[in-house]
Simulated scan of single mutants.
Amino acid sequence: MNLQDKVALVTGAGQGVGQGIALALAAQGAKVAVSGRTLAKLEATVEKIRERGGEALPIVCEVKSPESLQACVDTVISNWDGLNILVNNAQEVPLGRLLEVTDDAVTAGWESGPMATLRLMKLCYPHLKGDGVIINLGSSAAKRWDMAGYGAYAGVKEAIRSLTRAAACEWGPDNIRCNAILPHALSPALEWWLQRDPAEAEAFFAQIPQRRIGDCEQDIGRFVALLCSEGAGYVNGQSIALDGGQAFLG
């Protein structure tokens, strides 16, 4: 899992899963650009990395803005003269039943999810050629036993999985690998959901064979670090559920 001398960009890295991934990549030696909308949160992540002896850079970025995405990539390249790892984690979540979820929420979910993912992959492509790795964040929401209230969210996340597969097929000859992870992790968003609907949460836990939610760094981040390493050099175009065995993707 040695990522020494690698440069990584992680979106939505100010908290939760994005922060856990940033910490894990830095622990294996990567320089990590942590991006997101709130500078204070980004600085907190950077401080954690630096306290452990790692190198990190905070970059304020609005992933729904093409100009902001371009500026983010330019900042990474100007600071570290390269990019090896891209993690598309940022996502606004459009929750609600089909008759209730608003057009604005779905549009925000689309623009912050698959549209931002595609834009950032294209911006990073020239820098990733040769030894690049892309990790996109999907979701097992489309595999839920009851999809009520999750249709719009599952829709944007399934689009990300399709883009992941396409990138793996089209850019494999350029030695760029692209995979998607579908994590369950104790992020602020999940904690909010657990508090909002404890009855549904109890049923949710019962469907996880390991009977626990993953840790953002130890369970999700460390696996991402593995996927970015030479040890996973032949893993490409896959959607991998990091959920204690809950989802069956077959």
Results as ranks from 00 to 15, higher is better:
residue 139 S to L: 00
residue 139 S to G: 03
residue 120 L to Q: 13
residue 139 S to Q: 03
residue 117 T to H: 11
residue 136 N to Y: 07
residue 153 Y to P: 01
residue 148 A to T: 13
residue 135 I to N: 09
residue 89 N to S: 04
residue 92 E to K: 12
residue 108 A to T: 08
residue 112 S to L: 12
residue 132 G to V: 08
residue 122 K to W: 12
residue 120 L to S: 15
residue 95 L to A: 03
residue 96 G to Y: 05
residue 93 V to N: 03
residue 120 L to W: 14
residue 145 W to V: 13
residue 141 A to G: 04
residue 146 D to I: 11
residue 111 E to R: 03
residue 126 P to L: 04
residue 107 T to R: 01
residue 120 L to N: 13
residue 130 G to A: 06
residue 113 G to R: 03
residue 88 N to F: 08
residue 139 S to C: 08
residue 137 L to I: 14
residue 92 E to N: 14
residue 144 R to M: 08
residue 96 G to F: 01
residue 152 A to I: 11
residue 124 C to Y: 02
residue 140 S to E: 14
residue 135 I to W: 10
residue 151 G to Q: 09
residue 98 L to A: 02
residue 101 V to N: 06
residue 106 V to C: 12
residue 110 W to S: 07
residue 130 G to F: 10
residue 132 G to S: 11
residue 102 T to L: 06
residue 147 M to P: 06
residue 129 K to Q: 05
residue 134 I to E: 07
residue 119 R to Y: 15
residue 108 A to G: 05
residue 109 G to P: 09
residue 141 A to E: 05
residue 123 L to M: 03
residue 109 G to F: 05
residue 151 G to P: 01
residue 94 P to H: 00
residue 117 T to N: 11
residue 143 K to L: 10
residue 112 S to M: 14
residue 118 L to T: 07
residue 149 G to S: 00
residue 153 Y to R: 01
residue 102 T to F: 04
residue 105 A to N: 06
residue 142 A to S: 04
residue 154 A to N: 00
residue 95 L to H: 06
residue 108 A to C: 13
residue 142 A to R: 08
residue 105 A to H: 09
residue 113 G to Y: 06
residue 144 R to L: 09
residue 93 V to A: 07
residue 88 N to L: 07
residue 107 T to N: 09
residue 114 P to N: 08
residue 114 P to A: 00
residue 101 V to S: 00
residue 133 V to H: 08
residue 126 P to R: 01
residue 90 A to S: 14
residue 145 W to S: 06
residue 128 L to F: 10
residue 140 S to Y: 07
residue 122 K to G: 03
residue 126 P to W: 01
residue 124 C to Q: 02
residue 102 T to C: 07
residue 113 G to P: 10
residue 103 D to F: 10
residue 104 D to V: 15
residue 150 Y to Q: 00
residue 125 Y to P: 04
residue 112 S to T: 15
residue 132 G to R: 09
residue 113 G to L: 13
residue 124 C to E: 14
residue 88 N to A: 06
residue 147 M to T: 10
residue 117 T to V: 14
residue 104 D to S: 09
residue 133 V to R: 08
residue 145 W to A: 05
residue 119 R to W: 13
residue 155 G to C: 04
residue 104 D to P: 06
residue 89 N to A: 05
residue 111 E to W: 02
residue 124 C to P: 13
residue 150 Y to L: 07
residue 152 A to V: 04
residue 105 A to K: 13
residue 91 Q to F: 04
residue 89 N to F: 11
residue 151 G to N: 06
residue 90 A to V: 14
residue 120 L to E: 15
residue 104 D to H: 09
residue 147 M to Y: 00
residue 121 M to L: 11
residue 116 A to G: 06
residue 133 V to D: 12
residue 129 K to Y: 02
residue 92 E to L: 08
residue 111 E to G: 07
residue 109 G to N: 10
residue 128 L to K: 00
residue 95 L to E: 02
residue 109 G to V: 08
residue 92 E to Y: 15
residue 113 G to T: 11
residue 148 A to W: 10
residue 105 A to E: 15
residue 99 L to M: 00
residue 142 A to M: 00
residue 103 D to N: 12
residue 131 D to A: 10
residue 110 W to K: 03
residue 129 K to N: 04
residue 146 D to H: 00
residue 92 E to W: 14
residue 93 V to W: 07
residue 143 K to Q: 08
residue 139 S to R: 00
residue 88 N to T: 11
residue 121 M to D: 15
